[in-house]
Design a protein around this nucleic acid. Structure first.
Length: 495
RNA sequence: GCCCCCUUCGUCUAGAGGACUAGGACACCACCCUUUCAAGGUGGCGACACGGGUUCGAAUCCCGUAGGGGGCACCA
């Protein structure tokens, strides 16, 4: 492999036609890790040669997504670079030049077949397992073709591929793959609008940008022979190619959906980077998890920070087989990273979500709460439901039956709450003092700890599931705690 | 239909001929801890798709079958 002597330059080259999907993100990540591992450059190139499907929002989704994941690019939109422009529609004259070269060398030809003709060919040839185009203009007189083209007749330009023999291409992950030239099609390299197709533009750009390794999705393996033929036609040495396994749905059946759906329990199943970010998946967790979809370091290590991933990433540990996306495991990773945050960092991270939920929270209080909700959050957007009751004047009404402790009835509740109230009124409001005082109450009442704490929790939080009680009370403060106990008692009286 | 790729627990994977009674992680189950929920701890369930070879010996190599995936556009 002579490529070892060349500087490592890899690119992520998405087409701005839709939202930024995790499949694309994983490809970007592998390129990024590979580049950083080798001290090379990670290049971002926008492949916008399809003007019909172009979506102006897509570039923003992409750029924001990459930034969220922390995959900074060395060359590309916004940062520039010596090999620009990095947007294909700004490179049209370059492609034109190389296309002419192919035409001049009889390695490409103009084709005047109409869409209708093509449809007919498809109908006839497809069932026979043949490629659509029957090469009817392959041997058409170039002079006549030029004449028709000059007169303005609509046409495309096709590559002239070998008719027989085999071509063996090498994939860094899969090894050698052999294709029969016979089944290859003289594909279109320049569309009738004068814009090149992906196949042509990508080859020219990768060569001109001195890309050393192409790491791309597995859907491109069938285009490998075509691309290699194009490199050969230009007389260029192709980069090392590696095709990454596709990401399958969590069930393991089928390519991961391009549309977001919901799980049976109503949970949204995100597939766009933007949605993961909105739900509050930590950048580090996403990166760590995604790195493990199709790649592994060893038989044990899974939690790795960016530096470790960069240091350890290598192509020969990328799997050739498809991998399915596992939301539970991602959640676990997110939990791990969430728990590693300092209270300050967590407070900062959840603040936007809390505000978004209409909760009037202050940073200092969130910092105090943080340690107690930290191990209970799956994603940042879970935070509001854990902290809302800290920041309201009046608790929303809840079902009084929630107050009833195990093996007791509603009639037992008032005396428990009354006892709690009286004890707490005389207690210093810190965790240990509350703990000690309440346990005395448990003893006097002759009930179990849980039976006493349950109604207090409900009275104070208004919900069955909440952060640890004593810490909660401490943060809430004596005044609020006593007030909520009183309010509950009076509700019970009216009941 | 044709071409190509892939195939170890439900899922992600380790394994590159003997170290395998097939290891780890998520999920699941049980127990422990415990004021709810978590987190944590301990243990458990659970896989080499199938059939032929090659070899003294195969999860590992070869062939076939089956299954899965990708591609076959004036989309990338």
């Amino acid at each position: 492999m002579t490529a070892l002597t060349k500087p490592v330059r890899v690119r992520y080259a998405p087409s701005p036609t839709g939202d930024f999907h995790v499949g694309g993100a994983r490809t970007a990540l592998f390129n990024y890790l590979f580049a950083r591992h080798h001290g090379g450059n990670f290049i971002l190139r926008i492949e916008d040669t399809d003007q019909k499907r172009y979506n102006p929002e897509a570039v923003n989704w992409l750029l924001n997504g990459l930034r969220y994941l922390g995959l900074d690019w060395d060359e590309g939109p916004e940062v520039g670079g010596e090999y620009g422009p990095y947007v294909q529609t700004e490179r049209l004259s370059i492609y034109q030049h190389y296309c002419q070269q192919l035409l001049d060398n009889d390695l490409a030809y103009r084709c005047f077949a109409t869409p209708e003709e093509l449809d007919e060919m498809r109908r006839e040839r497809k069932p026979k397992g043949l490629p659509t185009y029957d090469r009817r203009y392959r041997d058409y007189d170039p002079a006549k073709a030029l004449e028709r083209a000059d007169s303005g007749e609509s046409h495309v330009i096709r590559i002239k591929l070998p008719l027989e023999g085999n071509i063996t291409v090498h994939d860094a992950i899969r090894g050698d793959i052999t294709f029969q030239n016979e089944i290859l099609e003289d594909v279109i390299i320049v569309k009738s609008d004068g814009i090149p197709t992906y196949h042509m533009a990508n080859v020219i750009d990768d060569h001109l940008m001195e890309i050393s390794h192409i790491l791309r999705g597995d859907e491109w393996v069938s285009s490998m022979p075509l691309h290699i033929h194009l490199y050969n036609a230009f007389g260029w040495e192709p980069p090392t190619m590696a095709h990454l396994p596709v990401i399958l749905n969590p069930t393991g059946k089928g390519k991961m959906s391009k549309r977001e759906s919901r799980a049976p329990d109503g949970q949204i199943l995100p597939v766009f980077v933007r949605t993961f970010e909105e739900l509050g998946y930590l950048s580090d967790a996403m990166v760590n998890y995604m790195a493990l979809v199709g790649w592994s370091y060893d038989d044990k290590t899974e939690i790795m920070d960016r530096e470790e991933l960069i240091e350890r990433f290598s192509l020969d540990r990328v799997n050739a087989s498809p991998a399915s996306w596992n939301y539970e495991k991602l959640n676990y990773f997110n939990g791990v990273y969430m728990r590693a945050l300092t209270p300050e960092a967590l407070a900062k991270q959840i603040m936007p979500y809390v505000k978004e939920a209409g909760i009037n929270a202050d940073y200092d209080t969130l910092v105090k709460i943080a340690p107690f909700i930290q191990e209970r959050l799956n994603v940042l957007s879970d935070a509001p439901q854990w902290v809302d009751f800290f920041f309201v004047d009046e608790l929303p009404a809840y079902d009084l039956n929630m107050l009833v402790p195990k093996k007791m009835s509603l009639e037992d509740v008032p005396s428990i709450l009354k006892t709690a109230h009286d004890i707490l009124a005389q207690t210093e409001f810190n965790h240990d003092a509350i703990d000690a005082a309440l346990r005395v109450g448990v003893k006097t009442l002759g009930i179990k700890a849980g039976q006493m704490f349950q109604p207090i929790r409900i009275a104070v939080c208004g919900k069955m599931v909440a952060p640890p009680l004593f810490n909660t009370l401490e943060i809430l403060g004596k005044e609020t705690t006593l007030k909520r106990l009183e309010q509950t008692l009076s509700r019970l009286e009216q009941n």
